[in-house]
């Protein structure tokens, strides 16, 4: 496709097209995560005995992961601040830090899953674990996608191109963060 699309540059709704699309993505993600959390909550409330299984989750790892994601989000935010000043290389460096935070999160998550599975806390042994693995797995896929996009945008920002995208991936990255707040509290904290 050669040439610039006029439609992409318009903003009849009063905001840039890319940002509008990111918010649309977030609005459509809410029912996806809600669709797995709402059934979990109603089952969890109906089954106090699932508390034993919830107690087997390692809350310290969960808390550390929360801090990791928050810190990663902070770097996405700082990258946005750098991009607003037009400092592409700095924005790229900070975006990469954010992406590495996501990767470390995934590694810790993988270790956690491994520990669960090796203790026979697999989805087959209880519907609680089914929900736990599905919800954190769904969230993990979003982290993975986010890391890929962060790195891709960092590569562009390094050359000073498409700096407005730094903010867009930031919004998505914070959303993934917010979803983790919910997962962390609902699965790890509330027993």
């Amino acid at each position: 496709m050669s040439g610039q699309i006029i439609a992409t540059g318009r903003s009849a709704a009063g905001m840039p097209t890319g940002k509008l699309a990111v918010w649309m993505v977030i609005a459509s993600e809410i029912p996806i995560f809600g669709g797995i959390l709402a059934p979990y909550l109603m089952h969890r409330i109906g089954h106090p005995d699932w508390g034993q299984m919830a107690a087997s989750l390692n809350v310290w790892i969960g808390t550390f992961n929360t801090g990791l994601l928050v810190t990663s989000s902070l770097f996405a935010m700082l990258a946005h601040a750098a991009a607003e000043r037009g400092d592409g290389p700095l924005a790229a460096a900070r975006l990469r830090l954010a992406a590495y935070g996501g990767l470390v999160f995934l590694c810790i998550k993988a270790y956690e899953w491994y520990a669960k599975i090796s203790h026979d806390h697999v989805p087959q042994t209880g519907t609680f674990y089914g929900y736990y693995f599905s919800a954190t797995g769904l969230h993990g896929i979003h982290i993975l996608a986010g890391v890929a996009i962060l790195l891709a945008i960092a590569a562009q920002a390094e050359k000073g191109k498409n700096l407005q995208r730094v903010e867009l991936i930031g919004i998505y990255w914070h959303f993934v963060d917010v979803v983790w707040f919910f997962l962390f509290h609902i699965f790890y904290i509330i027993r």
């Binding site: 918010w23 809410i30 029912p31 809600g34 669709g35 709402a38």
Partner: peptide
């Protein structure tokens, strides 16, 4: 719009 999504989940 986001609240609409959350409202749909409360409804569910």
């Amino acid at each position: 719009l986001c609240l609409l999504g959350i409202a749909a989940m409360f409804l569910l």
